[in-house]
C-alpha cells in the first residue's frame, strides 16, 4: 500500500469534510429536540421546587408553567394564582466539591418555609456527592421551616430533620452552605420582589 503525500493529504481533507458535514447535519437535525428538552427541564425544575409538578405530563408542565409562573427580573420566578402570590422559585449557585452546583429553591408566599429544592447542574462524584440529585435527599427540603437569621444545618432540629449523604460530606455541606447563602442574600436581606 504505497501512497504519496498528496494522496494522504487529499484523503484527510476529504474525510474531514465528509465527517464534519455529516455531524453538522445530524446536529441541526437534533437541535430542536435538545432545545425543547432543555426548556422542559427548566420548567419542570421550577415547578418541582414549588411543589407543583406532581403527576404532570410533559405537556401539562408547559401549560402549568405558562399559566401560574411569571419570571422576575434577575431573581427567578414568582408563582401566582388568582392574582395572589403563592410562592417563589429563587435560583442558587455555588461551589461544590468539583464544580458549580446550580438549581432553584422554592419558597412559600409568606417566605416562612422552603417548598423544595432542585438541582439543574451539578458535577459531583457520581454515586457519592451526585446523590444530592436523588429524590430521597431532595425531598428532605420539602416544607422546611426557614426564618431570617437562622441557618439550616444537618441533624435533628425543632420542627425538621436533615441528613447529609454518607461518604459525601463535602458535597452535603456545600449544598447547605449554598442554600443558606441564597436565603440570606436574596430572600431575607433584599427580598424577592
Amino acid at each position: 500500500m504505497k501512497k504519496g503525500h498528496i494522496y494522504t493529504l487529499v484523503f484527510m481533507l476529504a474525510l474531514s469534510t465528509v465527517l464534519t458535514l455529516a455531524l453538522a447535519l445530524a446536529y441541526e437535525g437534533f437541535k430542536p429536540n435538545i432545545a425543547a428538552h432543555d426548556d422542559l427541564k427548566k420548567e419542570r425544575s421550577v415547578l418541582y421546587a414549588l411543589g407543583l409538578d406532581e403527576g404532570l405530563t410533559d405537556e401539562q408542565v408547559t401549560d402549568t408553567f405558562a399559566k401560574v409562573v411569571e419570571p422576575v427580573e434577575g431573581q427567578g420566578y414568582v408563582y401566582k394564582q388568582d392574582g395572589q402570590v403563592r410562592g417563589y422559585a429563587v435560583p442558587f449557585t455555588g461551589a461544590g466539591l468539583w464544580g458549580s452546583i446550580t438549581g432553584y429553591a422554592g419558597l412559600s408566599g409568606e417566605k416562612d418555609k422552603l417548598t423544595g429544592i432542585v438541582f439543574t447542574k451539578q458535577n459531583e462524584t457520581p454515586g457519592l456527592g451526585g446523590r444530592i440529585d436523588e429524590t430521597e435527599y431532595r425531598e428532605q427540603f420539602r416544607n422546611l421551616p426557614i426564618a431570617p437569621g437562622t441557618l439550616l444545618s444537618y441533624g435533628q432540629h425543632d420542627g425538621y430533620r436533615l441528613d447529609g449523604i454518607t461518604g459525601a460530606t463535602q458535597t452535603s455541606n456545600a449544598v447547605i452552605r449554598i442554600i443558606n447563602q441564597m436565603l440570606s442574600d436574596h430572600v431575607f436581606n433584599e427580598g424577592v420582589q
Binding site: 484527510m12 474525510l15 465527517l19 445530524a26 446536529y27 437534533f30 429536540n33 435538545i34 427541564k41
Partner: peptide, 23 residues
C-alpha cells in the same frame, strides 16, 4: 488518526442522540 476520527464521529452521533432522546 483516521480510525480515531471515524470513531469520534460516531460517538458524537450517540451523544447527540442521547441528548435529544434520553436527556
Amino acid at each position: 488518526i483516521v480510525q480515531t476520527m471515524v470513531i469520534a464521529a460516531y460517538v458524537i452521533l450517540v451523544d447527540l442522540a442521547l441528548q435529544a432522546f434520553l436527556p
